[in-house]
Amino acid sequence: MKRSGNVILIAGFGFFLLGFVVVGLIPWLQPKQSTHTIVNLKGKPEPVNEITGAAAKGRLVYIHEGCWVCHSQFVRPVSGEKQYYGPVAQAGTYNYQLPMLMGKRRIGPDLSDEGGKHTNDWQFAHLYDPNSISPGTIMQPYPWLFHGSSAKPTKRAVELVAYLQTLGTDVAEGTGYKSYWQYKAAQVSAVSTVVSNTPQAVREGMKIYNANCQGCHGIKGGGNGPAAASLKPAPWNFTSGKWMSKYGTTDKDIYNRIAQGVPHTSMPEWATTLKPNQIWEVLYYIKTFSQKKTA
């Protein structure tokens, strides 16, 4: 009868609005939900900066190009994400964001703490042709953000990279470091040898090198990978012994270069991405390049 129709209408409205109020509106009233303060890397509360200027425009480019379709922006407190991506997401980080860009997939890696991880050079080279730096990546190239080469970014590319460089930098405020990565690199101390130099370790090292290093340093370690031309200063050539002399020749020194990255160059720190044993394996593999030369 007609009444049953009305019952359904009222029930439909009622339950739905109840759900909206309970899980939509009540949390809004919690002060923790709308805070603009986060705890920095040294455990002190710090206000979050609202992004402005070029970075704010870059955020619109990030939305327009659909970066958020493949990249998430929240680090969970589980599954070892803290070790891999950076500090666990805090509510305050997001509360100036409209719309929020937490994302839903990781077709590519999380970008919560991308700021300061790579140089602008690196970002431009990677956006122009991701495969040149990360061989085998499935990321979409964005040549339309450039005037024909990675050295000539358009205004939109500059804005996008300005935005990427702000991501996750708030946790470093008040610590004396510019970004989480700089802070992290300073924490890395020489790690004792956890893997010995065996053919097995070299093979493992080759796998990691081919995925993560050859884009800049070249498949044969010649410092001439596809992305090398875009980077200043140029990546190291491992085939001659010269590269070692600048930073010291012991394994420990080399280890620290890989783990901490090299300031003012496109060499990022790898201590977050690679575990100590993996860094040792890569190290052993890198050393084979110059051995072949002398042999």
Partner: peptide, 17 residues
């Protein structure tokens, strides 16, 4: 709501909803 008013966490909640 998540486009014009609900920022950050609130936006995420309403988007999930």
């Amino acid at each position: 709501i998540p486009y014009y008013w609900a920022t950050g966490n609130e936006g995420a909640m309403l988007n999930g909803f």
